[in-house]
Simulated assay, not measured.
Amino acid sequence: MNPLFLLSILVGIIILSSAYTVNAQSEISIDAKTDKTSYYDGDKVTVSGNVKNFESDIHSAIDITFRVIDPEGNIVSLGQTRPTSNGSFSFDFDVGGGFFQQTGNYPIHLFFESTKKEISFSYKKGDAEPPLPKTNSLNSDRKIITITMDDPSIFYLNTPNQIIRALVEIQNYSPSDGKHFMKVIHTPTNKVLKNSEIYPKGIGNDIWAVQIAYPLLDSDLKFGDQAFTGEFEIHISSEFDAQTANTSFLILESRSIPSFETNQEFIIPEWIRNNAKWWVQGGISDTEFISGIQYLIQQEIMTIPETDQTAEGSSKNIPSWIKNNADWWSQGLISDDDFVKGIQFLIANRIITI
């Protein structure tokens, strides 16, 4: 047989094999869960899971970063853990005291490379409730409602096609609880923008769930010349049961985070990532972080696109999403552009003065 013909066949097999190998590689994802759904003071939360499509020769030196967020959006615990050679991992942390000051739903954010996973648990401040007497009732277990917000959690006025998405899960659901309702509340004014019934469906293991998809319309946010911005809360409740769940999101005016053209230059020294990381971890205070950024801008060590300080008044309160952005940016999970928008927000609202 012609040697050239054999060679061409061999090359074709190699090319097809390489293509199959590349296509066979799947995206990395994270599966994780807590050992319980609810905790009290002094309890230990154990999180276990697996990184799907983990390759030990590629990922063996990469850690999973986790952070725990309270109902107000503040970081109350964070750390890192390294998966085993098969991609499995586990870690634990204590709840109660310290930063755990509020009863409610606590999201856990897990990051591995560019992959993010969110799970949550319920925390009730105080000692654990005594066990209920054993009965034959099918509904003797405590009912627990959780709500998990999908990304993004920051929205803007005058921006079309924005949809707020969240997953509501109800453990130990009972028809005797009656109807379930969702309220969207403007936190600063306590004004209810939406109040509607939701319809959970059984998904197994005594869990009922419903996916919320709430189109964000300017007509819902504007009353005459007044526009409602700032923090909003999604509140889930039952007709005849006291259990509730809450999560929050942010709506900003377009001018609060000024846009800038891609041809406008900005310079961020790489070592500022360390400052952002220290700030997120509590190594430096809000005041020290703001003063540092302000100094770097004034000394032209850090260059930010020109930003008008149009907000009235002066506030030193830094929104929690700014710190979230700094955390993600320090880990390389969001772009420099996104981090700069946060700095521009601080400038526009006179938290940073230049």
Rank of each mutant, 00 (worst) to 15 (best):
N86H: 03
H180V: 03
A242Q: 03
D94S: 15
N139K: 03
S48P: 04
I290V: 07
Q171T: 11
S29V: 13
K44C: 08
Q80R: 15
T37S: 10
S48D: 04
K134R: 11
W271Q: 13
I13F: 11
A326S: 05
S114F: 04
S254L: 09
V51F: 02
K44T: 07
M182P: 00
S122L: 12
Y20N: 06
E113P: 15
Y173C: 00
I257T: 14
A348K: 00
L167I: 14
N2V: 09
G230W: 03
T46F: 01
W279L: 06
P258Q: 14
Y40C: 07
P130M: 09
T287W: 09
R142P: 14
F111Y: 15
N50E: 15
Q264Y: 04
D43P: 07
N275A: 03
T187V: 13
D206P: 02
I62W: 10
Y295D: 05
K183R: 15
T187Y: 06
I304S: 05
P3V: 03
A276V: 15
D177A: 02
V22S: 08
Q80N: 09
D220Q: 09
N190L: 02
G332M: 12
G178H: 01
I145G: 01
D92Y: 06
E300D: 12
G98T: 09
I28H: 01
R255S: 15
L346M: 11
Y199R: 02
P319G: 08
N50S: 05
F112R: 00
V51D: 01
D150M: 02
I30F: 05
R255D: 12
Q226A: 07
I144L: 11
K125G: 04
V184A: 12
Y39A: 09
Q102I: 06
K277Y: 03
K117S: 02
F66P: 01
L216D: 12
K52D: 11
D206Y: 14
K191C: 00
I164H: 15
S176D: 11
A166I: 08
I334T: 06
V68Q: 08
I145V: 06
I108H: 10
T353P: 00
T287F: 10
S122H: 13
L7S: 09
S29H: 12
K316C: 00
K194P: 00
E239V: 00
S60C: 12
Q25A: 14
I304G: 05
I343Y: 07
P160M: 01
P107L: 06
F181P: 02
I14R: 09
F100S: 14
G126E: 15
L296K: 12
Q25S: 07
Y295C: 01
G204P: 09
E27H: 02
H235C: 04
I352H: 00
T46S: 00
T353H: 10
T103F: 13
